[in-house]
Design a protein around this nucleic acid. Structure first.
Length: 813
RNA sequence: GCGCGGAUGGCGGAAUUGGUAGACGCGCGGGACUUAGGAUCCCGUGGGGCGACCCGUCCGAGUUCGAGUCUCGGUCCGCGCACCA
């Protein structure tokens, strides 16, 4: 039929109300809220499903499109699970404490409490509530709320009591611009992740959480988690397990009698020609002969700040000597910044022939290079591969791995060495000399030392101070609030002082998923039936920028709580998928670059449904890509087609096999695609189906059942328009009602006719259509009868024929 | 430097995991309807050739009846870690 000139249809279409996304979306937002459609029955769920998207920190500039990806993507998944019959709990909240919020407040010259209250309201009311997500706002959390951080502090107290929180002096990363210390995870290539200032090493007494105790369990448990591989790899690398040996060297000429070094290559022990102590080693002085102390200290104080490029010319011969445990040779002991005082034992045996850094250092300081593994030319460069041991006494001729074990065994006889494991992971420094965070609930008593604030006195409220700006090294803004700081010791009652540091914002966000399922915020969020019912989170979606920090800290906190008997599951997130990062003009979106796209304008102009569908159709969900809005126009065209087709579909030809098959294929396709987060391909199929149904609507043959299926399959992506059409087509319930997802029949979803390609020597020459499942011999017979094939064979028999049922017949001549 | 991804039309991307490369969308071309349309709808659209055909998935080899998909070598891009001994 002529689809271009059907006056009857044009007339009928014109009788339809035009699709007005703004009106439709406002209407359903109101109804859903009034009816409480998305309030989850937390106490008696039949099939609980905890769908979580990483909560945002309200930046006060508002959401940008980068936020829409996780929220919309998570919501699509959650809505789909709900349609599949589950009680989906999809909460939302705000990570409102933290340095990001505080810096913003300083910039605009207002108090963080005021800025955050406004920002949270703006996020919730003007943005998050408009994107069509089924967030259950009755469980909103805000990390800056005393009712929340009471439990952040409670958590700290549990850790303190269990010996998992420790107040100790240590090397810390000091950002001279932000005027605070940073966790190792907040330092990127030696620079502050926020302001990119080069961080300096300082020694301060600070609070650390002993995540290193969990290095191995955190590593082991990773295998069983259903997470993106890239995320797991990043966590493994961050934990950084390496296997090797610890070897003891006796020392001469200094206060210390011996030093242990860690190596992954004990097979190279005979090639050790000197030792290097990390320049930042906390007790470097013990390695130095008394008469050289002054010189070494002067050298140490003149060290330049760490740079991106290692400088192997920096180093000093300390003057003491180390005794090689097997040869008895006396080796010089050096100090250099290329060795890290905080990793391993803070000292190494240098094997310049077989380690590139040691090689460069040896060259720079004309130290001997002795080959003990053959296979390279150590005069030109270090040979780091494995090989046959040489110059290694009784071990000569052995291969690296075997020889290494024998060397350790030999050392073990004299208690000079043993197999050992090292991790890169270091303890989590949580003290911040900042204002906008939860005060660490500790009181320092001159007699009793650090004492935890009793649990029934929590929260330790963050006092209001007008001057909340950071004060400098080791000084917190809270230190100035004398009446708050001076309190009696909870143990002995003597005058004592409160801890004036606040905790890292990552502590706030390390447990928020435990808070959501509670309703009574005075109640303990742990150790309850609610947590047992709802945890672990079934599906967690967020950005890979949190692959290490947030996800690792959360796993640590959950695991520790589990070991303390507070929760029944050891892992917080059963399944995690990182969405791809949306970039703009080839760069990450950021305020600094001025390439931030504000979603409000799009939602204003096109509606949330269009924007959601558009964002999800850009590309594979877990890969991300460049944001360009030229293609958005296709989405309103698609939704208008749905608008028409759904309302004009009146056919009841439910026995039509062709159409039934097509319908089942659609359900299966969308079902499989959503399960795999292949939203882009699901949308493609929905578009195709909608076009065909629209054509049928013009002919007057569109079936009601097809329209209903289309609405259900589209509902997770475009919740508003589908709900409106569901109502307009005479349904009393919601299109999003639990369990409404249409069933498909796998047999019907398979095509019944297939096109088989015929190739000759791999080149496609013809095709023919047959019933699906036609046996191979029949396909071969049919193919050989094709005139095009007979021509090519010109009477000869084919050399070989390869048949793949339903796909291809390849004839080799 | 090390580790993980990736490279397909003018563009974003599909491809049942070894079986018709380019689904779907944007853009572009043509047409319909319009007083008009940047609104809506339809058709076409990898490149070359009048044509049967030929060439095409970053580059170069290989395995195979058959390679975008597998193997080896290389180039470029993205992300993560970065003196971790």
């Amino acid at each position: 039929m002529d689809l271009t000139n059907s006056t009857a249809v044009v007339a009928e279409r014109s009788r339809l109300d035009p699709y007005d996304p703004a009106a439709v979306e406002a209407k359903w937002r109101r109804i859903w809220e009034e009816r409480g459609d998305y309030r989850t029955p937390l106490d008696d769920p039949e099939r609980p499903f905890y769908m979580l998207t990483m909560f945002p920190y309200p930046s006060a500039e508002g959401l940008h499109v980068g936020h829409i990806i996780p929220f919309a993507g998570g919501d699509i998944y959650g809505r789909w699970r709900r349609l599949k019959g589950e009680d989906v709990f999809e909460p939302m909240g705000f990570d409102a404490f933290g340095i990001h919020s505080e810096n913003y407040a300083m910039k605009i010259g207002e108090h963080p409490a005021v800025v955050m209250r406004r920002a949270v309201n703006n996020f919730r009311e003007n943005q998050l509530k408009r994107i069509g997500a089924m967030f259950d706002w009755s469980h909103e959390v805000n990390t800056a709320d005393p009712a929340y951080y009471r439990w952040t502090q409670w958590l700290f107290v549990q850790f303190f009591n269990a010996g998992l929180a420790e107040w100790r002096e240590g090397a810390v990363n000091w950002c001279p611009s932000c005027l605070t210390v940073l966790a190792d995870e907040q330092v990127e290539s030696g620079r502050c992740e926020r302001c990119h200032t080069v961080v300096e090493t300082r020694y301060l007494r600070q609070w650390w959480l002993k995540i290193t105790r969990y290095a191995q369990p955190l590593l082991d448990a990773l295998d069983a988690l259903d997470w993106s591989d890239s995320t797991k790899t990043m966590q493994r690398n961050w934990i950084g397990r390496s296997e090797g040996a610890t070897i003891l060297f006796d020392l001469e000429g200094c206060r210390r009698k011996d030093v242990r070094v860690f190596t992954t290559r004990p097979d190279t022990l005979y090639g050790a020609t000197f030792l290097v102590i990390g320049a930042d080693h906390p007790s470097l002085e013990d390695f130095v002969p008394r008469e050289r102390l002054g010189e070494v200290n002067a050298w140490r104080n003149r060290l330049p700040p760490a740079s991106d490029e290692p400088d192997f010319s920096i180093g000093i011969d300390l003057g003491s000597r180390a005794v090689h445990p097997l040869t008895g040779q006396r080796l010089p002991v050096w100090a250099a910044p290329y060795v890290l005082g905080g990793y391993g034992t803070g000292a190494i045996m240098a094997v310049p022939a077989h380690d590139v850094r040691d090689w460069q250092f040896a060259r720079a300081h004309t130290l001997p290079i002795v080959e003990v593994i053959s296979g390279g030319n150590v005069e030109e460069t270090a040979y780091t591969g494995e090989g046959t041991m040489v110059g290694s006494g009784e071990f000569d001729g052995l291969q690296s791995s075997d020889g290494g074990h024998r060397v350790v065994a030999k050392l073990k006889e004299t208690l000079r060495g043993e197999e050992s494991i090292q991790y890169k992971l270091r303890d989590w420094l949580i003290s911040r000399q900042r204002y906008w965070g939860p005060p660490i609930p500790i009181i320092h008593c001159p007699d009793d030392g650090p004492v935890a604030v009793p649990e029934d006195e929590l929260p330790v409220l963050l006092p209001h101070v007008d001057d909340f700006r950071p004060k400098g090294l080791g000084v917190s803004p809270l230190a100035a609030v004398e009446e708050w700081v001076n309190v009696p010791c909870p143990k002995c009652g003597k005058p004592a002082r409160r801890e004036t540091d606040v905790s890292d914002t990552f502590l706030d966000s390390s447990w928020y998923y435990l808070r959501y399922p509670s309703t009574d915020f005075d109640d303990v969020p742990f150790d309850s039936e609610r947590t047992d019912t709802w945890l672990p989170v079934d599906m967690y979606i967020g950005g890979n920028e949190h692959a290490v920090r947030h996800l690792l800290y959360s796993r640590f906190v959950m695991r520790a709580l589990h070991d303390l008997g507070k929760v029944s599951v050891p892992e917080p997130f059963e399944r995690f998928r990182a969405h791809g990062m949306i970039i703009m003009d080839g760069a990450k979106m950021s305020k600094a670059r001025g390439n931030v796209v504000n979603p409000d304008e799009y939602i204003e102009q096109y509606g949330a449904d269009t924007f959601r569908v558009f964002m999800m159709s850009l590309g594979p969900y877990t890969e991300g890509g460049d944001f360009r809005d030229e293609a958005i126009a296709g989405v309103p065209r698609f939704l208008k087609r749905v608008w028409r087709a759904a309302q004009l579909a009146t056919g009841d030809d439910t026995q039509n096999e062709q159409k039934e098959r097509r319908r089942h294929r659609l359900i299966k396709q969308v079902d499989d695609d959503i399960a795999d987060l292949h939203y882009n391909t699901a949308i493609s199929f929905l578009m195709e189906f909608a076009r065909e149904l629209d054509h049928e609507a013009i002919e007057g043959t569109a079936r009601v059942v097809d329209a209903e299926t289309l609405l259900h399959c589209l509902a997770p992506f475009a919740p508003f328009i589908t709900e409106e059409l569901w109502q307009r087509t005479g349904h009393a319930d919601s299109v999003h009602a639990r369990g409404g997802w249409p069933q498909y029949d796998a047999d019907l979803a398979r095509p019944q006719r297939v096109t088989v390609a015929v190739t000759i020597n791999g080149k496609r020459r013809a095709e023919f259509e047959v019933d699906a499942g036609t046996p191979a011999d029949q396909l071969e017979r049919q193919a050989l009868q094709l005139p095009r094939v007979a021509d090519s064979l010109s009477g000869h028999a084919p050399k070989k024929v390869v048949v793949v049922v339903d796909r291809i017949v390849n004839i080799v001549v």
